[in-house]
Structures are given as C-alpha cells and as structure tokens.
Design a protein around this nucleic acid. Structure first.
Length: 506
RNA sequence: CGGGCUGUGGCUCAGCUUGGUAGAGCGCUUGAAUGGGGUUCAAGAGGUCCCGGGUUCAAAUCCCGGCAGCCCGACCA
C-alpha cells in the first residue's frame, strides 16, 4: 500500500493537540502511566533522552563551579512550617508519611507505628538543605556554597499529564548560599543563562527569559527568573526557573555567618531547577504528525542502521556490512561527542521497522542492503525531511560527513522553532487586538490560536488577574535589561514601564 | 472537592434498551508466502464480563451498595 499522505500519528496536531501529544509518547515508546495515578514509567527511549539532558547539563553545572550532593527524600513536617509563603505554596500538594510499619489485620495490611512527627515527601528541598547549610556555614570563609542535587520530588497534582505535570518527577535543584546580595543575584542570573543556553543549543528551543510577576513567583522567593518556551499549539511552557531567595530561607533555617568585620549576617541564597518537563516541552515543540522529532544532541541514538534482510543468501553479508558501518560511524564525532549508533536487526518487516524509527524520532535512518554493498553506498533518510525522502551517498563520504549532517539537523530544528515562535509573537497595543488574538474563532471546538503577546502592563496584580479570568492568559515573564519602552497599559490606561510577555500556558 | 461518563481476553471496544451457550478488531504463538518497505493467508492460545448483595428457573444484561478510572470545572514553584 502506498499512502504517502497518511500521518503515522492520529489524531494530527491540528485535529486534537493534547491527544496527539499522548499518542506521540505512546508511539515513540517514551513513557506510560503507571499503576499509581500521576506517576509515570519512563521507558528506555524516554530515559535515554533524560540521561543526555542530565549528563550535558551536569557538565555545564560543573563548569560554573558547582558540585553534586544528595539530600533526603523525607523532610520533617516542622521544617516546611518555617517559611510562611513556602507553606502556602506547597502544603496543598504534599504527600505525608505518618507511619513506619505495616501489620496484618483481617488478611489486610494496615499502617501501624505512627511517627512522632509526620514526614513530608520533598516537593522541593529548600528547607532541609537550609538546615544543613546552617550547620555548615559559620564564617564568610565557608561561602559560597554551590551545590546541586539530581533527585525526584513529589507534588500531588490533581491533573497529571505525562512529562508535563506528574505527581512524581525528576529534576535537578541547585542550592547556593552567598556572602552578599549582589553575589547571589549574579548566581541567579548566571544559572538562568545556563538554562537559556542549554535550551537553545542542546534542545533547539528558543526561549524568552525574564522575571516572573509576583503572582507567579516561587513561594518564598524574592524574585523568580524563568525561561519560557513556545510549543506548537502556541502555548507557553515554563521550562526552567532560577530563584533569588534573598535572606528569607536563611532566616527560616538560621544560615548565619561571621562577617569579615566580625559581625553576624544571614547568608543570601538561591535555588534553580529544571525537570523532566523539559522532555514534554521538547516533544511539543519539535514533533510532527509522524511522531517524535528529536534534536540529535539529546537523541539516545542519533543513527539507526536498518539492514535490508530481504534475501536469505545475502543476510549474513548485510549484517556484517551493517556492523562495519556502525563501527566506522562510531569513530566520528558530533557536538564534540562520539556519534551514537544502533543497528536494528530485529526480524520484522523493513517498512514496519522504518516507521517505528520515524515515530521514535531518530535523527538519521541508514539502510544498507545487497545493492548498497555492491555500490559501496548507503540509503540515508533524515527525520527533519519527508518520510519517503532518501539520499544515496557513497558510504565513505557519508561517514566522513555524518557529524556535520547531525549538526545541520540540530541547527535546522532551532531555526524552525525560532521562526515558529517569531511568527506567533505579536506586539499588541489595544485590548481589542489582545482579545482577538487570544479568542478562538470557533468556540464550540477551539482551534489552535494566539501565541505570545508583547503588551504593556501597569504592573498591578489586579490587571493581571482581570486578564487571567477573562482570557486565561497570564504574564509569562517580564523581560529585563534591553530596550525597555514605556507606554500605556491597554487595560487600565495607567502608565507602563515596559512590555511584558503574555500567553496561555501549561 | 463539585458535574458528567465508563469498568467485558494483553490493548481498543461491541453486546446491556427487550435476561437464555462470551464476541470483534488489533496484539501474541505456530506454519507458509512476501521481500528496498507502513505485508498476506491459515491455524492456535488467551476472559472471576470491577467487587459485594438482591430479583429470577436463569444476570455481562435488571435493582441496591461499594471500589476504580476517564473527561469537564476548581486547584496547579
């Protein structure tokens, strides 16, 4: 059957974006829902992406002077109470451990051995890390403390979605303590820069950076910086945050040090994190109606070799040629790392296997069969082009150029995502334009609409709330620095210091 | 925590209105064919019809009570 127009994923993005997202994950075999509501099983292909994210980010953290450590999963309930705003932000979604033993009763296991003080499963670790820092930091000579941890956290979400919002998720959380406010602020900026660079260069995601408004700020932070990406339904997604915590958590945890002058002062702290949500962002930003599209830099395998095993008599020669090709490709580098190659030797139909790899988003598919061996060529398909498009380079030339091909796919994805974002980012000056931009044409079955709006805002929570309740549009970030342009808030008529980024969000 | 819907082989679901031998597609196993592509044919395995109670000669089907899940709201650094 040739049905070139048939998409591998049903429904398509245009037909039903949320359902398309779920089907892409399923078709690419990234993850699935588990027996525990809200908790996901990350399958090998999905985990492979996370391993690359982890490894590559970890290098960047080390390069900026950070070291890794590990803090406990459980936090005494009383710790959470120490920072008032923090309590308000997290109490509603905490999992609580109240017992430490099970006893058999009437054939069922029931909790026994109640704890003196309940423990919460960490929703974030500021409080327990703060308590440790309070012991570790005595003098200005002990500062700065620059520690990161890779961990899981639990936030009991009411409406989970694979990778985007799950009850348990994986992340990294950096926690630093500094002698001065300026130094802590600089740290917050520096790590935001790391996230921006990682998103752009590794995930091929162009992001807006800026500061959160008060209503979107991390509970307990003085200020929250963020990176915001646009995905293909034109919604915004917060992909990473970096918080300046001032002395709030130092005060709560008692992180106090002797200054150079001999006085006592509270340390200035920061925290910053990205999570498995990055994978959800990646999926929604780059994938198409044939399934996942992976930036080569984070693809678990960058190349899959598909031996054409159609004729029994050529089978062993083809397999051997595939092995030799893989070995040659592995001597090549892309992005400064050895190229990652796997061979799919499964005894299944060639077409079936080919489509599986399209759906898994592997950047390059290389077929090698009897005819290729004769001609010393290979058949190469790129995931950023049509599923039927093939090129037939001479094998040696392909091997020599594979690094630059992968790099061009990577930069192509970034260019495409950037063009998409720019196309759907508007500068708006009136409430009418704003409403039109964010209101779907068909209210019965809302189509993909809107995007990012750069508009003036009077800086008040009231205006922000008004827009949110009317249009479900929120301020994603307040860009800093560069060409700020004063104007008038279209909602209140009050003066505005600068334009901010509005969007519907995940 | 409110409103709606659904629980039937591994998966997606039909059957329920009007009670009478447990079904389909996909997947799986085996065999054959096919072979630069999203396969075809044949045979086979696999089910406490969510749980408990009731009505009945007889319940997947009707009634009552649980439990679980999904969707829409509310909530969501």
């Amino acid at each position: 059957m040739n049905a070139p127009s048939k998409a591998a994923i049903s429904p398509t993005r245009a037909a039903n974006f949320p359902e398309w997202y779920q089907q892409v994950i399923k078709a690419a075999d990234l993850a699935e829902n588990s027996d525990v509501r809200g908790c996901m099983i990350i399958k090998p292909w999905g985990w492979g992406i996370w391993e690359n994210v982890q490894r590559q980010l970890d290098v960047m953290f080390k390069a900026t002077g950070h070291v890794n450590a590990y803090f406990p999963l459980f936090i005494p309930l009383s710790f959470l109470e120490k920072e008032a705003e923090h309590v308000e932000g997290f109490a509603k979604e905490c999992a609580v451990v109240t017992h430490h033993r099970l006893e058999a009763r009437d054939g069922k296991l029931v909790p026994a051995g109640e704890l003196n003080e309940p423990l919460i499963v960490r929703p974030t670790s500021e409080t327990i890390i703060g308590a440790a820092y309070a012991r570790w930091v005595q003098s200005y000579r002990d500062l700065p403390v620059l520690i990161n941890q890779w961990a899981n956290v639990v936030r009991w979400e009411m409406r989970p979605r694979l990778f985007l919002r799950t009850a348990e998720f994986l992340w990294q959380e950096g926690h630093t303590a500094h002698e001065t406010k300026e130094e802590a602020l600089a740290e917050t900026e520096k790590m935001l820069g790391v996230y921006e660079k990682f998103a752009r260069e590794h995930l091929a995601l162009p992001v807006f950076t800026g500061e959160k408004s008060e209503s979107e700020r991390f509970p307990g932070a003085v200020s929250t910086l963020c990176i915001e990406a646009m995905v293909q339904d034109r919604k915004a997604i917060q992909a990473g945050t970096s918080h300046f915590l001032g002395q709030n958590f130092s005060r709560a945890s008692g992180i106090q040090f002797t200054t150079r002058e001999g006085g006592q002062e509270l340390a200035w702290t920061t925290s910053w994190g990205v999570s498995t949500r990055l994978i959800g962002t990646l999926i929604m930003a780059h994938s198409d109606d044939d399934g996942l599209v992976l930036p080569p830099r984070v693809a678990p395998s960058q190349i899959v070799i598909l031996p054409v095993l159609s004729k029994p008599d050529s089978r062993s020669a083809v397999l051997q040629a595939a092995e030799e090709l893989a070995t040659k490709l592995r001597t090549q580098t892309a992005f400064g790392e050895p190229v990652r190659v796997e061979i799919d030797q499964r005894d299944a139909g060639g077409g079936v296997k080919n489509w599986e790899w399209i759906k898994k988003g592997v950047p390059l598919r290389v077929e090698i069969g009897p005819r290729d061996i004769e001609k010393a060529s290979v058949a190469v398909s790129r995931r950023d082009r049509g599923p039927k498009e093939k090129e037939f380079p001479v094998q040696a030339e392909f091997v020599a150029s594979v690094g630059s091909i992968l790099e061009s796919i990577q930069s192509g994805l970034l260019a495409r995502a950037t063009a998409f974002r720019d196309e759907h980012t508007r500068t708006l000056d009136s409430a009418e334009e704003f409403r039109a931009f964010f209101t779907p044409q068909n209210s019965e079955q809302p189509e993909i609409h809107g995007g990012f709006a750069l508009a003036h805002w009077d800086g008040t929570a009231e205006t922000e709330e008004k827009i949110k309740s009317e249009l479900k549009v929120t301020i994603r970030c307040i860009p800093r620095g560069t060409e700020t342009e004063a104007g008038v808030c279209p909602w209140s008529g009050c003066p505005s210091k600068q334009r901010v980024v509005f969007a519907k969000s995940y």
